[in-house]
Design a protein around this nucleic acid. Structure first.
Lengths: 198, 198
DNA sequence: GTCTATAACCTGATAGAC
DNA sequence: GTCTATCAGGTTATAGAC
């Protein structure tokens, strides 16, 4: 039962955000009523935090392992990371928008959750490994913030503007999938331009 | 008075979004009470639409003119466009997040407003002009959707993650301003990599 | 035009019966 | 554990006095 609730809550929170999701909505989705919800999670906030924990930990990635394999080329490593994120985002297309929205509403909530789950540490290690290669002259010297910005902006933007794309570019799901595949090559090309020594 | 209301409403809507901004909040900010608000704009929705109109029209850019000047290099033209957006976003740092949030909440509202103000047409012309140069072989052949994605993702991402940057990268305002200046060069470099024939 | 008063509703949360 | 009943507080919106 507890799981049923968390699943329904996660789906609704991700789709519409914290503020615009009501407890009644979650209750009817589960098939029970409000008071029953409060029995399992005393407050809306507690419930949201439980959901956040699950989401953040699903993003703690094996993904970052890929960055560590120095024997592989930049293109190969970036490709693996993109694939991992694509898989996650394809199942939850509104996840990037959700993270951004809640990061703006209450940054501490997400950041603290990430700290508890050692996400920042894992990410730090991965970025430090990139830094090493820069120091060795194997990669261009670029600030890690810029590496982060370039990668995540390009990765997330198509998902962030999914609604718009459907209306403006008339993208259906099939079209979107094809586009993502081409877009992956674009991200790789841009990251190579950023990082590879010429 | 009507203007005073619109200004207060715009500031609040941009900062916190439609759902999390209440009429009472706007009223106290203006210095009157709720019923007085409803006198000027009958419903919250009507008021929001009035605000949206002003915001969208402020983005209809002279910006796009810059793209038309074919005699200038890609780098020069992109630079001008970035400056125009930087100016707008510097005064309203939460504007990109606002647009994205409302685009996800109610895409039609924004798109219809954009249609009324001929934004899509202006944008279409600018993109068509880029298309021409591709046909002439002066620029790489890339889908216009990708040109759009590359530019706007890189442009908006630092603003979208402003809250996070302040907490994670310890960026104060001064630091952020410097970073933006370097970031501009990064956007130009990436757009050149995308568009320039080698 | 701007106020007070109030309607009608929805929210999150709790108490208590079963 | 799950229900009914209810509370206190906030929301948009309107009616009517001044």
């Amino acid at each position: 039962m507890e799981n049923k609730i968390i699943n329904a809550a996660r789906a609704l929170f991700i789709e519409k955000g914290y503020a615009e999701t009501s407890m009644s909505e979650i209750a009817t989705r589960v098939g029970i009523n409000r008071p029953a919800l409060h029995y399992y999670f005393r407050t809306k906030d507690k419930m949201f935090q439980a959901v956040i924990g699950g989401i953040v930990s699903s993003i703690i990635p094996k993904v970052f392992d890929a960055l560590m394999h120095k024997e592989k080329s930049v293109a190969e490593r970036i490709g693996v990371v993109i694939d991992a994120y694509y898989e996650l985002f394809w199942e939850n297309p509104h996840l990037p928008m959700f993270l951004l929205r809640e990061l703006n509403r209450d940054a501490d909530l997400l950041i603290n959750s990430a700290k508890e789950l050692n996400v920042l540490e894992t990410m730090g290690k991965a970025l430090a490994s990139v830094q090493e290669e820069m120091d060795e002259g194997k990669l261009n010297k670029v600030s890690l913030q810029f590496v982060f910005y370039n990668f995540y902006s390009l990765l997330s933007f198509p998902f962030l503007t999914l609604n718009m794309a459907q209306k403006v570019f008339m993208n259906d799901q099939e079209h979107f999938r094809e586009m993502l595949s081409d877009w992956k090559q674009n991200i790789i090309a841009q990251m190579r331009n950023l990082l590879e020594v010429k």
